[in-house]
Simulated scan of single mutants.
Amino acid sequence: MPSNEQRRQNAKRKLERQLERRAQRAKRRRLLGVVSAIAATVVVAGGVYYLATRDGKTEPAAQSSESSAPPEGKTTGGPCAYLETPGEKAAKAVGMPDDPNPTPNQGTTQVTLKTDQGDVPLTLDRAKAPCTTQSFVHLAKAKYFDKTSCHRLTTTQGLKVLQCGDPSGTGSGGPGYSFKDETKPDMKYTRGTLAMANAGPNTNGSQFFIVYGDSQLPPNYTVFGSVGEDGLKTVDKVANAGPEAGARGEGDGKPKLPITINEAVVAN
């Protein structure tokens, strides 16, 4: 007869599987956009209300029927549990990251995005987000980011980010796997923040964003590193040219000054 502890663990695992299924059902096509332009920030009952859409479409509601769930893919055996997404073909074939136990969670890793507008050095923090850092380094070493454009720039009040990491350049491409959030309630998105874009809880893939101006976002996007002022000069140059008019409205679209990551180089 199972003990109370075993029942709790079984229930926990069942809940995690259900959450993963719901996230996939709610996103039949991956839309790894950072929350779109914040159209309004309204104080409601002492809190902040964010009006958000992705690609001009509202998020579909999760269905209750388990039978409609897409097939579940393979999961790596380590603590990060990277999940293969069979229904979402990788924008560039790359495979899944190694998943050692324990996950390295100390120190920083330097990655330089060598773009056609100038270098953008990144400092990845394993202590903040070990699984995210592990995935990002895997993608960089596999040349997943090489020859890819940064497909989205926002210059609206409260949302100033440059988004990259989709080889398809559409904002819907991913690496063929997803992984869980590594978020904290007190996360802030100030200038120089490096964070993951997503399409809802636990849907991280390859897309990331660089915050070039203090932004107002709920703490739903994993912060896994930072960009120094030298790198931000390159981002500022792109931001100052502004975005093209897009489906999301004024101040949110492809950069008018295109920026392409020619190579992502891992230093250590």
Rank of each mutant, 00 (worst) to 15 (best):
A90L: 01
T115K: 00
P102W: 02
A129K: 10
Y177I: 03
P70I: 07
K128R: 15
P102M: 07
T85M: 08
P130S: 14
P104A: 12
P167I: 07
P97S: 10
K143C: 04
T115D: 13
G78D: 01
N105C: 07
V94R: 06
K128G: 06
P121G: 08
A69T: 14
L159C: 00
P79I: 00
Q163S: 01
E88V: 05
P121A: 06
G171N: 06
Y144E: 06
V120G: 10
T132M: 13
F136V: 15
R152M: 10
D166H: 04
P130N: 12
Q157R: 09
T123G: 08
T108F: 03
G169E: 04
A127I: 01
R152P: 10
D125M: 03
A91E: 02
T132P: 12
L162P: 03
H138K: 07
V111Y: 13
P130R: 12
L113C: 05
Q117R: 15
C131R: 08
T170Y: 08
T155K: 04
T170A: 12
K141W: 02
Q157S: 14
G173Q: 05
P86R: 00
Y177C: 08
K114E: 15
P130Q: 11
Y177M: 02
P97K: 02
C150G: 12
G176W: 03
P175E: 11
A129S: 14
S178F: 08
N101D: 15
T115M: 08
G171V: 01
L122C: 08
R152F: 02
R152H: 09
D98T: 13
Q134R: 14
T148Y: 11
A81V: 01
G165S: 03
K89D: 09
T75F: 00
A90T: 05
Y144V: 02
S135K: 06
T154W: 06
T103C: 12
G77F: 00
G118M: 10
T133F: 04
M96C: 06
K141P: 07
K128M: 14
K147V: 12
A81G: 12
H138L: 11
D119N: 15
K92N: 06
A140W: 11
A127Q: 15
G107Y: 07
S135T: 11
E84N: 02
L153A: 10
Q110D: 14
L83M: 10
G158S: 10
L122A: 12
V137L: 10
P130F: 09
T108Q: 12
D99K: 03
P70G: 03
Q110R: 15
C150M: 12
Y177L: 04
G118L: 11
Q163I: 00
P175I: 07
V137W: 06
C131M: 09
R152Q: 11
T154H: 04
K143I: 04
P100E: 09
G171A: 08
E88T: 03
T108G: 00
T132C: 13
A91V: 00
P70N: 06
A127E: 15
P104G: 13
Q157G: 11
E84L: 01
G73T: 01
A129M: 11
V137P: 09
P102L: 06
R126G: 09
P70V: 04
G95Q: 05
S149I: 14
T148F: 11
A93T: 13
P167Y: 05
